[in-house]
Amino acid sequence: MTDIPVLSVRNLSVEIPTRDAVLKPVDQMSYDIARGEILGVVGESGAGKSMTGNAVIGLLDRPAHISGGEILLNGKRIDNLSLGQMRKIRGREIGMVFQDPLTSLNPLIPIGDQLTETMLAHLDIGAAEARKRAIAALDEVGIPGAAERIDSYPHEFSGGMRQRVVIALALCAEPSLVIADEPTTALDVSVQAQIIALLRALCRDRGTAVMLITHDMGVIAETADRVAVMYAGRLAEIGPVAQVLGHPRHPYTEGLMGSTPAASRGKQRLHQIPGAMPRLGHLPKGCAFHPRCPYAQDDCKRDPGPTTEACDGRAACWHPVENPDVKAAE
């Protein structure tokens, strides 16, 4: 074990030049993921959470590009690598699990061949060994009768089973980081619970770092060790999951938690965040959240929102929510 985080992102910015303006879907993001840790990235659609994931794995679609900052994987910079070098890292060092398991598997190729293809490309092993490992990988993700089903096509599996195959695919080259982009959004709750338990167990056993991107606060609460809340391309709040979700300091996190229905709250009226997330081309001056923020003051409208480092390392806010519980805990 070393002290170097598996993934370290420093002041990452992504830009999309358009005819009218340069859009910044990701703006000065900084975060680390340690070995065996699950970082949840949560935010509403358009917050830029998938963009950060794609930037890390080098899958930004042109014209989007990294315009500033650094991405360090195990202490080595990967944001300035060539396409060829990045290809070697993708799949080998960083695995990816996408939302829709049907579209992330090739429907014309048996799943076994898709698994062995990845291993043959990245690992120094022969075809027979790869097949053996593929069966072991399928077995590990809980596919019953792996040896018989390895030559099945993706359509022969149910949605949950397909997502297991995708996870096996992401983990088969034993990467140190897995980016899971909404891995359970397309699945039913009971299957979602299975997939989450699987992801967690695999990471704990192998020490894989996971970046779990989702919009579901419940999934984050149960799965992640730390959570990063994104709003309009910026990090709003980051910290241990129990602190951030239990005692939010950023007004946006507080609003998000209030507007999520929970069984324990019964029929209480839901807290409403007024308005909607601004479009990237029309970000308000100052802190991007101020038009919807109940605590906004004059300096919020004037000065651009601070980064998390500039504050207490947690909430990127000039006037964080003073929470008596937190003070007591500190």
Binding site: A193, M217, G218, E222, A242, G246
Partner: peptide
């Protein structure tokens, strides 16, 4: 199996 907001870990 429904995820809970306060179900940390």
């Amino acid at each position: 199996s429904a995820p809970r907001l306060d179900g940390f870990g």
